[in-house]
Design a binder for these strands. Structure first.
Lengths: 220, 220
DNA sequence: GTCTATATTGTGATAGAC
DNA sequence: GTCTATCACAATATAGAC
């Protein structure tokens, strides 16, 4: 992997300064191995710098792990916020959320497993997730994330345009159906007898099958 | 925690012999901390035995971790196989799978996060999962797990009793909706602004809301 | 089978030269 | 800012008494 280049007489990265390279490398390693399983040495190698430099910039492994977790959380929820808070009608919104997540997670398939594993093993991550989420809700407390989508659901229920259900169940179902197949990909492959090609075909089918399934589920 | 008692002049556990106690303790610790985050010392303390005894029975940490993973996998898939391979009609089966999982995972809420985290971080776990699953399918290869349920779905589609969909999508959707809220409990709480009580109420609601949702989704 | 004590390695972190 | 060298301790694993 070529990640350094001589520019104007100094050794410089193609991807930015050292701090950024370290963060990128840490992102890669922490997401694949989890916080407990990650090694500072592996991150240093991946970034092409010395181990000591990680501590110079981030003080400790825990500090670096926190930075990565928040960065991953922002990436995941940023896109969701963007789509969910638009003023599109409910049905369009469902289609777009499905499309965005299937495409995004198809390119970063380790992210759901990482986030779930972290939340399961490190209770303090829940707090950090709340703080990250709050950034997208103008600091409102309790965090009213996805409030636009949720009021839309409540109104559609009152108007009889969708089946009666709480907005919590609506959101939980939508997120479950989008994210779980990536988080549990090896599990699904084992249970359904699929190989890598089979899973790709499954995902391709899902792009149209999932919106149909969900929209039919909420039809009155 | 009292876990030893003098019986007939020898020190004996209330919960069985030492090997069993170690496995129980390891189960507890590995599921909560993940394989990389678990410590042999903590398992020994939890089992009430010396650290060296873990190696006497299981040779290495990796050996103990494998034993626990397979045990957890058997527990999860055993119940699912039992319900899915019964001869109940499809709608009843859906209701029972939902009921079984919401009840079972309500009592072992760390299990989904553990399995997903393991699969995400240790590629060799996928292979071990396949082997475990194969135990429930009489060694058929490729594993035809849930074959009873899947043919039932295919027949219902052909008969027009449910909407057209592949049995893969059917199973993936059902499992996603049952398992994900437990795996991502802290995430859902953050995103929906729920505390512990709120989540309990959400689960209680879900016991009736989820079967309704799913059955409506597959209605023609 | 179970323990105490110890070996051995792995790993996060720091000191100090450049 | 970045490196080399090293420390300090945590954690797995083993030897050997009982």
């Amino acid at each position: 992997m070529v990640n350094t280049e001589t520019i104007a007489g100094t050794t410089q990265s193609l991807d930015g300064d050292a701090e950024q390279r370290i963060l990128d490398a840490a992102h890669l390693v922490f997401v694949r191995r989890g916080t407990a399983g990650a090694r500072m040495q592996e991150i240093a190698d991946e970034a092409g710098v010395n181990k000591a430099l990680l501590h110079y910039y981030f003080r400790s492994k825990s500090g670096l792990a926190d930075a990565v977790f928040k960065r991953v959380a922002r990436g995941v929820f940023g896109r969701l916020t963007e789509v969910a808070s638009s003023d599109a009608p409910l049905e369009d919104k469902v289609r777009r959320i499905v499309a965005v997540y299937l495409e995004q997670l198809g390119r970063a398939p380790f992210v759901p497993g990482y986030i779930i594993g972290e939340l399961s093993q490190h209770p303090e991550r829940a707090q950090q997730l709340m703080e990250t989420v709050r950034q997208f809700t103008d600091g409102a407390m309790p965090p009213v994330f996805l409030e636009g989508l949720r009021t839309q659901v409540d109104e559609a229920v009152r108007g009889g345009r969708i089946r009666p259900m709480t907005s919590e169940q609506f959101v939980a179902n939508l997120v479950s159906l989008c994210v779980f197949p990536f988080a549990a990909r090896p599990l699904l492959c084992a249970v359904l007898g699929m190989d890598a090609d089979g899973f790709e075909a499954f995902l391709e089918d899902r792009r149209t099958a999932l919106p149909e399934f969900f929209l039919n589920a909420i039809r009155p």
